[in-house]
Design a protein around this nucleic acid. Structure first.
Lengths: 349, 349
DNA sequence: CGAAAGTATGTAATCGATTGCATCACCTAT
DNA sequence: ATAGGTGATGCAATCGATTACATACTTTCG
């Protein structure tokens, strides 16, 4: 009876296991999800039957009935960026350890991201969202949601002040200030800042830290040396051009991420300038390559691993009811100044 | 009737839409998935009702009934590696454009990956797998699967010769040969090779290309200068140490990826050696940073974007029945030698 | 001894969308 | 006028797991 189906059979269902073990499907279901509710002997028979049939649960059926997909959605602005892909790596690790699947949604300029993300939730494809995309209009997103109060959503890296949402981020203002203070302490007085993408909280916070440090040192903030960027290496190269064309360029620059810092240094070196001899550079993130760049990059290290790990933990805790959804908290991680060789005192004060 | 439910309501279902539009659920379902099968007027009423209720489909219910999840699984060895995260980016773009979700599964050393991946399939969480993880024991994986012949699986980057599986890869042997030939043509005679992870097809193929080139030039293959690695920068640094400690080190090295090349150069430079003056280096992949490294890296460019795009297309075509699952084909993309400044003739022949 | 509580299991409704088959109205051709 | 065809729609079974409730049996204790 059993053997004749060996070939050409369908995927075994819980019915097959029940029949094989001589119990009802209810018992099988219980044996699998709460073993302590089933007697030892029945449990053994069921385990045996599971092995015999090669049964695996049908997630779709389970999701339908339980109204939960055991899946989280990770919304990223740029998977290709090592900073985010490292975070994704940590998120995936934590999720896998807790038997959750991870869906990724990269930003797509041509698509309305708020609608897209919402759709994942409303269609029951994901139970919660881990939002790393600072460009999403969160207000609108929550406006669209019919039940935004109970939407399991953890905002990471960026935040919406006063939104009351669970948030995991780093101390960007402070980090921006410390990066700038490092340059000031080396004796630099004319310090440029290469911005992140406009409209991004990260950008404004790092800029604020930069401004605070300059003001505290009694230095003016020169509009001209606050340079637009969007986290790509190309922006660094553009900034380098502006430096080279200037009559009296700054002696240092604080870049809102490492890629731009590398783009900047690379382009300067291509034209015969040396870092840190001619210009000091501080980056942000401490991507793997920063330590191996030439010169090794001074940068504000973000706790990438932790950002991913803790934000995932927070979301999963909410989903598993280990944490009240309406008791949000802001977790702020510390950045760390890593001094390497791309910064030095200015050559002529 | 309708309005009283405005607050505290459940997610609307197809039943709600049917009631609202005064038709059966069957008609609503048809109106949504094959509009041409319902009359113009009914369709309009249904569209209207969908808007009224804010209906979105319940994917779990649909998956259960259709036995398909509209989701693909991307299995990667290392999300954090920019080479793979760029690929993932391209995959996600293609999938999103075709309304497919993307689940990611990064390799986890402590877990049996074959079982894990299979589970995604058998539990109906994913309809197909895009396999970039060269370390998976594919034979065993297919052995475990009860129905491996019909399993929608596209192998990318690596391949299993004779497996008959749909494959998208680059010409690694050829690329390895050309990278080595480039060094030979500059006049190098003692050329080291820094390997990828052992047991990986990529590794053996690139090594084969390297060996072919040396043999063709009538040069011996020195075991000592085939150095183990696993694609991490640290390996490059270790290789550098071996160079420095050698009485008569090679004048050039071909590294199986850019990270290791950068690790190598960085460590050499740290000890006062210069690239390419003291040693020429060829990398592999052409990650974004390669062009901006110092010196800019000579490397074999892999068509990352295309690898992701084409492999995703292939898998999705299979899933959508646009391509027979049993009519597999091997697609081989060309790599391209990008000569920059990390290679030069040896200083003393 | 008998009521109450506890344990193990079964029955059947349920989650929400899809689809084979049946039905009905209307049209056309012989 | 009738048979056959076509197009639009409804009915109800179905996908596979979960779980509230019911049932049967066992243990405990006054």
């Amino acid at each position: 009876m059993v053997k004749r189906m060996l070939s050409g059979r369908k995927t075994p269902t819980i019915q097959d296991v029940a029949r094989e073990a001589g119990v009802s499907t209810a018992t099988v279901s219980r044996a699998l999800s709460s073993p302590e509710r089933v007697s030892r002997s029945t449990r053994d028979r069921i385990d045996q039957a599971v092995r015999m049939t090669g049964y695996t649960i049908n997630q779709a059926a389970r999701s339908l009935r339980k109204r939960a997909s055991n899946t989280i959605l990770v919304a990223l602005p740029d998977i290709g960026n090592p900073f985010f892909s490292r975070i994704l790596e940590a998120v995936e690790r934590e999720a896998a350890a807790r038997q959750f699947n991870v869906l990724v949604a990269n930003r797509r300029p041509e698509t309305d991201q708020a609608t897209r993300l919402l759709d994942y939730m409303q269609s029951n494809s994901a139970d919660g969202i881990l939002l790393f995309d600072g460009s999403l209009d969160l207000e609108r997103f929550r406006g669209l949601a019919r039940d935004s109060a109970h939407m399991p959503l953890v905002v990471a890296c960026e935040d919406i002040p006063g939104s009351g949402l669970a948030t995991v981020k780093t101390d960007n203002v402070c980090a921006g200030r410390r990066a700038t203070e490092h340059l000031l302490s080396l004796g630099h007085r004319r310090i440029a800042h290469l911005l992140g993408p406009s409209g991004n909280v990260l950008t404004t916070e790092r800029l604020q830290g930069y401004s605070e440090a300059l003001s505290a040192a009694g230095l003016p903030i020169e509009r001209e040396w606050i340079i637009p960027g969007d986290f790509h290496m190309e922006n660094g190269a553009e900034a380098a051009q502006r430096f080279r064309e200037s009559e009296s360029p700054p002696t240092a620059i604080f870049c809102a991420n490492d890629e731009m810092a590398i783009g900047f240094i690379s382009e300067m070196q291509r034209h015969g300038y040396l870092c840190p001899r001619d210009v000091s550079v501080v980056g942000f993130d401490d991507i793997t390559l920063a330590a191996r760049y030439h010169p090794p990059l001074t940068t504000m290290r973000q706790p990438t691993e932790e950002l991913g790990h803790i934000s995932a933990m927070t979301l999963l805790d909410i989903l598993e009811g280990k944490r009240a959804a309406n008791a949000p908290r802001e977790i702020i991680l510390e950045s760390q100044l890593v001094v390497r060789e791309s910064t030095a005192p200015p050559s002529h004060g």
